[in-house]
Design a protein around this nucleic acid. Structure first.
Lengths: 253, 253
DNA sequence: TGTACATCAGTGAACGCGCGTTCACTGATGTAC
DNA sequence: TGTACATCAGTGAACGCGCGTTCACTGATGTAC
């Protein structure tokens, strides 16, 4: 979890500071476990305190309240997902756009299947009564879509993202939204391809959510890996990514 | 909510039976409201009893326990969604496949935006500690996918669903799953088109979930209707539906 | 190096709250003869 | 039509539980002179 510190203290941390940091890490880790078993809505400071071997009021030394712990867990999960996606993508040559796309999708799915409760916290129904503080969570929360867009934009600039045709024209109000996004992210892709990218993004998470949340009936798909692989290939097509061109095999998850 | 009763009692219901049925309806309705405000994890029999104006133990006359109420709410929500989708689809001529597809997607989205908490119960993170009884929920729970598949299969039989090419071949383990599904649902569509249909299904719910659960950053899309409309057109393409052919305009949501 | 003080981690009791579920009960509504 | 009985709806008290959060406190760890 490389957390780019804002570095306000040039001095090395004192033993006390290090102990404190470790305890906060422990709290987040225990909260993670608790989340996995009982779900976000049932996340309880008292339970975390119990697991930490400490009286319930003690955790208030480290965490302002329950909301704060939820926020920490949210950021932690977003960053772990972001790190794994980044690692998977950059393990392939920059020019292998199709391979990188597949790696991105597979990394999301792999993390989601390994961490279903944390995935649910990020992409499932909102936790009742909790609103994530945008100023702290949007950064980590946008890492995957940034990675995807960077990938597609790179392919576009390399002439390897072609409008597949079909679909509908982009109407003006939508074009305005897309222009704002393109400027904000410094992209070059066309409106139509940008819209396709957004659809591919939501579709990827739709496929993952159905699998993780058990929306496919039990036993409907005995070969979920192959299903997802097939979906990824179709989504690459939908995005406009040109098919494999010798730059590397797509790793089937 | 036309609930095809299993009709074991030929006699008309006694006043007592009618009062009882009305009370159960009230309980489900109040549970629905409670769900909307506090989320599924916080659904409470005591709260429902309070709203019903009755002492907490009284609801146990009507509902075995909390799980049972959740199941009732699940079935109720699935059926309302299914009814609205069926109504929207059958409002258009059977031969207007593209129009019906668009109507189906728009109906799902409309219901989800109107009933975010119930949508979350059906398609969000699973409620911790609760497992839906398959024998009671799979029927209502599969109405949308059945409607979608019936639509696509109808288009296929009419020669109006064409494989768009691209993507990948269907590998044997996946083909086995698809064959089972095709037989189970009495379909005719090819493997590739069936797989596309499944992707379109998950993608539709992915797009709706992102919007309902607020995954798009606040203010990212000022024109969500147009975005969804655009996505629907792209998904129709992905499914292999031939473009509009005079059979009717697509109703933009 | 030693002492006085400040900081901090953790304790334990308490506040008020809501929950699911059980149980013996009171009355009212229906049914059988 | 009238009476005796069974069924059912709803009551009220209780069980044991967990929760978030506050507060005055004890000791240990650090810091300043």
């Amino acid at each position: 979890m490389p957390q780019t510190a804002s570095a306000p203290s040039p001095k090395p941390p004192t033993p006390r500071e290090r102990a404190r940091a470790r305890t906060i890490e422990d709290i987040v880790r225990l909260g993670r476990d608790h989340l996995a078993v009982h779900g976000a809505a049932a996340l309880s400071l008292r339970a975390v305190a119990r697991d930490l071997g400490v009286v319930s009021s003690a955790v208030y030394r480290y965490v302002e309240n329950r909301e704060e712990l939820l926020t920490l867990l949210l950021i932690d999960a977003y960053n772990e997902l972001g790190d794994e996606v980044d690692a998977a993508v950059s393990a392939l040559p920059a020019a292998d756009f199709a391979g990188r796309f597949s790696a991105l999708g597979s990394a999301v799915r792999r993390w989601a299947l390994r961490e279903p409760a944390r995935y649910g916290l990020l992409f499932g129904s909102p936790v009742p009564g909790y609103r994530a503080p945008a100023e702290r969570t949007t950064g980590p929360g946008t890492r995957v879509i940034y990675a995807l867009m960077a990938l597609l934009d790179g392919a576009y600039r390399a002439g390897r993202l072609v409008d597949p045709g079909g679909g509908a024209a982009v109407v003006p109000p939508l074009a305005a939204d897309l222009a704002r996004i393109r400027d904000g992210m410094g992209l070059a892709v066309s409106d139509r391809l940008l819209a396709r990218g957004a659809l591919v993004w939501t579709s990827l998470f739709g496929a993952v959510s159905f699998e993780v949340f058990g929306q496919y009936g039990a036993g409907t798909f005995a070969a979920p890996d192959e299903l997802f692989s097939h979906h990824l290939a179709a989504l690459a097509d939908l995005a406009g990514l040109c098919a494999a061109d010798g730059a590397g095999e797509r790793p089937a998850y």
